[in-house]
């Protein structure tokens, strides 16, 4: 009898198989196509940056959890790997390794662990790291390697501006949009991924495949990415419709830069996105609008990182005031 005591616990007695670590590994898996493609496009640099980012993120998570927070480090949940991957996806592949390590440190140390670790951080850690690097090291962070050139070298590469940056600079210098548009690659190139930019930004198609994978695996719901992209499309579409000479077309806005990466992988971060449908709508629309505002009127060519961080700050507020619609709340019978 001793060896065979009955177990007693409150109901429910069964549990679905999805765990945190499985969710995180699913996210990583969803990023793999884009990762593989960027290794193909950018070569060794992409591999190195990702490797360094992931390893250092895991290392910092482990060290901080063990020695500063004095608790059992749980790196196997994969969240540090996801943060590292996302950070790598957000920086140029020719970024010096020490900058990547600094980015990881800021992402994990300041962005995540200083708030108490997984589940407590108000801001997306990878974006905290990315924005920190962007503001502190703007030159390194905005020189993008040109695809297919110098694939075998890591730091000494041919660089170019991103399409967004190119257009922005051009407009600032008073060139006309039409002439500028002729110099950037077409939409199909953006979609397939042969634009200069960070690893995660290049191929819209592969990011969308990752998105579909995550939706099918029930890692995320479709709401945030679709609403963010939809808002960007409508808002930039209105601007474009109003003045096509000054504003680029909405498809261009969506396919260039980090729009898809941000909407699919960054804005959907569990911890930093709202919990109710009503909150999600406001959050996603906010990201879309702020992104376009920054791109069109702001100082930076790309704004989705800032947009997500700004909306992250509103998430606790949204969670507090936008409750789910309760059953039996509206008395409407018939």
């Amino acid at each position: 009898m001793e060896s065979n005591l009955l177990t007693v616990s409150p109901s429910p007695h069964i549990h679905q198989e999805q765990t945190i670590s499985r969710l995180m590994w699913d996210v990583i898996f969803a990023m793999l196509p884009a990762f593989a493609f960027s290794v193909y496009v950018f070569g060794l640099g992409a591999l190195m940056v990702t490797l360094i980012a992931v390893l250092s993120a895991v290392f910092f998570e482990y060290m901080i959890a063990k020695h500063l927070l004095k608790r059992e480090p749980d790196i196997m949940d994969g969240s540090a790997v996801v943060t590292g991957m996302l950070l790598a996806f957000n920086v140029p592949t020719n970024l010096p390794w020490w900058l990547v390590v600094i980015g990881s440190f800021v992402a994990i140390g300041i962005g995540k662990m200083s708030f108490g670790g997984l589940g407590n951080n108000p801001f997306n850690p990878a974006l905290v790291g990315r924005v920190f690097l962007l503001i502190s090291f703007p030159v390194q962070m905005t020189t993008w390697p040109v695809p297919f050139e110098s694939r075998m070298s890591i730091t000494d590469v041919v660089t170019g501006a991103t399409p967004l940056g190119f257009i922005k600079d051009g407009l600032k210098n008073g060139e006309s949009l039409i002439s500028l548009m002729q110099e950037v690659p077409g939409h199909i190139d953006f979609f397939l991924g042969t634009q200069p930019g960070s690893m995660g930004e290049i191929s819209g198609l592969l990011l969308i495949i990752g998105f579909l994978y995550m939706v099918i695996r029930k890692v995320i719901t479709w709401h945030i990415p679709v609403i963010v992209i939809g808002t960007m499309f409508i808002f930039s579409g209105l601007l474009w419709f109003g003045n096509p000479d000054r504003f680029v077309d909405p498809l261009f806005q969506i396919l260039t830069g980090g729009a898809l990466l941000g909407a699919i992988f960054m804005a959907t971060d569990y911890v930093t996105s709202p919990m109710t449908i009503r909150g999600i709508v406001i959050y996603s629309v906010g990201i879309g609008v702020i992104t376009i505002l920054i791109r069109v009127f702001g100082a930076y060519p790309e704004g989705i990182s800032f947009a997500i961080l700004i909306m992250n700050a509103f998430v606790p507020l949204l969670n507090k005031y936008l409750k789910p619609s309760r059953f039996g709340e509206k008395v409407k019978n018939g």
Partner: peptide, 19 residues
């Protein structure tokens, strides 16, 4: 049991619309 990661799955499945 681990920390809550605010995935909001519990809200989505609650038939009574609770959190």
């Amino acid at each position: 049991s681990k920390v809550c990661i605010r995935c909001s799955k519990c809200i989505n499945v609650c038939p009574m619309g609770l959190e």
